[in-house]
């Protein structure tokens, strides 16, 4: 069996382990909620994670369309960027995918001597990590930009300049 199909064969197991690892970064109560509640609308976080994880997994073994991959990575990273995690933990789903694959298929990879393929796959993980990092930063920058805009709303500045605004108590 070739490398890709061996991994793809184990997709559902890998995704489950991957999701478990990733949601374990939350407290036990919420991790379980994010993982188990299948509702698209009652559990948008867990749903978005699962759907995009599956897509990332699939895309990894397809033509590696950068644009699509960005969209999927964005889905996960955008949520993590506002949840108050340190940056490294926010994007930790990438190394966690590698761990999950290794946990499920590592023994077979070693036995079959597919080291070359594994290293090639690891290059993809590196790219994925870069993508996640860029996405994370763009989300954070957008938040800061919004905050800056918020503080400098044009109308507000105009009003202030014209002396139209007064603050109570002053």
């Amino acid at each position: 069996m070739n490398f890709n199909s061996m991994i793809k064969k184990n997709k559902s197991r890998i995704i489950n382990i991957w999701l478990k690892k990733f949601t374990d970064t939350y407290s036990e109560q919420s991790g379980k909620f994010f993982r188990d509640n299948q509702g698209q609308f009652s559990n948008p976080v867990g749903y978005t994670f699962r759907v995009n994880m599956e897509k990332i997994f699939d895309e990894l073994f397809l033509e590696n369309d950068q644009e699509k991959m960005s969209e999927y990575v964005d889905g996960i990273t955008r949520i993590r960027a506002v949840q108050g995690f340190p940056p490294s933990v926010s994007v930790s789903f990438v190394p966690m995918l590698r761990e999950s694959i290794w946990e499920v298929c590592g023994r077979e990879i070693a036995r079959e001597g597919m080291h070359q393929e594994w290293l090639e796959l690891n290059v993809k993980f590196e790219e994925l990590m870069q993508l996640a990092f860029d996405t994370y930063m763009s989300c954070r920058e957008l938040l800061w930009k919004q905050r800056a805009d918020f503080l400098h709303t044009r109308t507000h500045k105009l009003l202030e300049r014209a002396g139209f605004i007064t603050r109570a108590g002053k």
Binding site: T25, S27, F85, S88
Partner: peptide, 20 residues
């Protein structure tokens, strides 16, 4: 194997509060 135990790297990062 280059990465025999990928878990090591992230093992120490957990945001799971202990069961209290």
């Amino acid at each position: 194997m280059a990465i025999s135990k990928p878990d090591v790297l992230y093992r120490n990062i957990s945001h799971k509060p202990p069961e209290t």
